[in-house]
Amino acid sequence: MQPENNWTIPNILTVFRILLTPVFVMSFVSSHVHLALLVFTLAGVSDALDGALARVLHQRTRLGAMLDPLADKVLIVTGFLCLGIVGWAPDWLVVLVISRDVIIVGGLGVLHFWGVEVRATIRPSALSKVNTTAQLVFLFLVLTDRAGMLSLPGTQATVMVLVSVLTVVTGVSYVLRGLSLFPTQED
């Protein structure tokens, strides 16, 4: 079997997105909201682009399948944490979003420890992808509002409710799927 080429354009874009996260944080904590918004938008565009390029160029890799959701989690958790610290997002929403991701990643670790092949059995659901998109849209809306570029309070509130519901529903779904994968012992 020939080794997989991991240095594909989509994977490079994904690594780029991961590396943009500290730039976003530094911009945000330095109160350069416009720059933070630009970096966040660039990360969001690279997210859409890497997936599309992987499909079009037939450059899907196992590394990309692992890095892409990791890059999403890093950006989303960091974004919500930043917004929560300065009070731009409700504490309960920040805790909800971050807790869901910590529980999922922790559950995957426990399943792996128990010998369950998690990569082969757990794939992101379509609803989970919608959740990720909604979370990114919420972060974008808050940042554009705080940068004084676009204020859509009704849309922002609607997306916040959507994020809340999707975060709970997809979190419960992953927990139930994970629990069903634990090996059972026969007496």
Score class of each variant (00 low, 15 high):
39 V>A: 13
91 D>H: 12
44 G>N: 06
184 T>V: 13
45 V>N: 12
5 N>W: 03
95 V>L: 14
77 V>Y: 01
49 L>N: 03
119 R>Q: 13
160 M>Y: 05
147 A>Y: 07
52 A>V: 14
53 L>I: 00
146 R>C: 03
38 L>K: 13
14 T>I: 06
134 A>D: 07
89 A>P: 09
24 F>S: 01
176 L>W: 13
72 D>S: 06
156 Q>H: 05
23 V>C: 12
166 L>P: 03
4 E>L: 09
178 G>N: 06
55 R>V: 11
153 P>I: 01
109 G>C: 00
90 P>K: 12
174 Y>Q: 02
132 T>S: 14
25 V>N: 00
143 L>S: 07
25 V>F: 08
7 W>K: 11
81 L>D: 05
55 R>I: 07
136 L>Q: 14
141 L>D: 02
122 I>M: 14
8 T>V: 01
49 L>S: 01
178 G>R: 02
68 D>N: 01
10 P>E: 00
113 F>A: 15
183 P>V: 02
64 G>R: 05
144 T>N: 01
142 V>N: 10
132 T>F: 05
160 M>C: 06
184 T>N: 02
125 S>W: 06
166 L>I: 06
149 M>N: 05
162 L>E: 03
132 T>N: 06
8 T>F: 11
186 E>V: 10
141 L>M: 11
59 Q>S: 10
180 S>N: 15
104 I>M: 12
80 F>H: 04
132 T>C: 12
62 R>V: 15
105 V>F: 10
80 F>Q: 02
160 M>A: 14
132 T>K: 06
62 R>H: 10
177 R>P: 12
77 V>M: 13
77 V>I: 15
157 A>N: 01
69 P>C: 04
150 L>Q: 04
66 M>R: 13
110 V>R: 09
144 T>C: 11
79 G>N: 01
186 E>D: 12
81 L>C: 14
8 T>R: 05
62 R>D: 12
122 I>H: 06
181 L>T: 03
120 A>M: 08
137 V>A: 08
148 G>K: 13
123 R>L: 12
124 P>M: 09
56 V>C: 08
64 G>Q: 10
47 D>H: 10
34 H>D: 05
152 L>H: 04
54 A>M: 11
164 S>V: 07
39 V>G: 04
130 V>Y: 11
29 V>E: 14
14 T>Q: 02
164 S>N: 04
25 V>M: 05
136 L>D: 11
140 F>T: 15
179 L>G: 06
66 M>Y: 15
134 A>S: 14
25 V>S: 00
183 P>I: 12
12 I>K: 04
186 E>Q: 06
145 D>G: 05
62 R>L: 14
31 S>P: 00
46 S>G: 00
73 K>S: 01
75 L>G: 09
164 S>F: 07
17 R>G: 05
48 A>S: 07
126 A>F: 14
147 A>E: 09
62 R>Q: 11
49 L>H: 00
164 S>C: 13
26 M>Q: 15
136 L>C: 15
18 I>M: 14
73 K>T: 07
30 S>A: 15
32 H>E: 15
12 I>Y: 03
69 P>K: 03
3 P>Y: 11
146 R>K: 15
29 V>I: 14
137 V>W: 02
34 H>Q: 13
43 A>L: 07
46 S>L: 03
